[in-house]
């Protein structure tokens, strides 16, 4: 499964994930308390420099991930022009671009395995009070393995539909898709048990 980590090695890939997450939390809290447009613009400039410091190719693919925000920018612009408060609208749009850009930067520069290690570390207190986190680790691996499999099953069902009908495939394939998923789950449960179960 392809993760959103950038395949381009940058300096930020070598920074420990824990530090990046801590810095991100701090920066996000700060961005929500900054009520000045100049400071928000300064922060956005810093974020852009952060992206550019990792190379122009990296920066370009990073900016692409901000595309999901366009509809919201459009809504904000229209809303605040009608309301006559363009400054406030600009402020909101800047803050939005800032927080999302910084978070995406952390995701793009952190390997999935390192992220899973941090998640496992965050669960340490639960292990100390006697909860078993092994089940979670197995579950993470199962989801990563099964998502592409289910996607492929869905594609096969769509092909089977197309081979038999001139109409477009509809939500009806969701039932066989779910039944197949349940059968897979039963097989996996039996296989886990046969290999000694989850302790």
């Amino acid at each position: 499964m392809i993760s959103l980590t950038s395949p381009l090695e940058t300096w930020a890939h070598r920074v420990p994930v824990g530090w990046k997450l801590a810095a991100l939390s701090g920066a996000t809290l700060m961005l929500f308390s900054l009520q000045s447009i100049i400071l928000q613009v300064a922060a956005l400039t810093l974020a852009l420099m952060l992206y550019l410091s990792a190379g122009s190719l990296f920066a370009r693919s990073g900016l692409k991930t901000l595309r999901i925000l366009w509809p919201f920018f459009a809504v904000i612009v229209v809303w605040h022009l009608i309301e006559g408060t363009p400054q406030k609208g600009l402020m909101i749009a800047l803050r939005l671009a800032n927080t999302v850009a910084l978070a995406n930067f952390v995701t793009m520069t952190s390997r999935l395995s390192d992220m899973i290690d941090v998640a496992a570390w965050l669960l340490t207190p639960f292990r100390h009070i006697g909860l078993k986190t092994r089940a979670l680790e197995i579950a993470i691996a199962l989801v990563i393995r099964f998502t592409p499999l289910l996607g492929r099953r869905g594609a096969q069902l769509i092909e089977a539909w197309r081979a038999r009908s001139a109409r477009h495939p509809s939500w009806r394939i969701a039932l066989p898709m779910t039944v197949l998923a349940l059968d897979d789950a039963d097989h996996v449960a039996e296989a886990l048990k046969a290999r000694g179960g989850i302790h």
């Binding site: 993760s3 959103l4 991100l24 919201f72 927080t99 850009a101 910084l102 978070a103 952390v106």
Partner: peptide, 8 residues
């Protein structure tokens, strides 16, 4: 995906 969607 990624952390950005939790700030969007």
């Amino acid at each position: 995906g990624g952390l950005g969607v939790f700030a969007s």
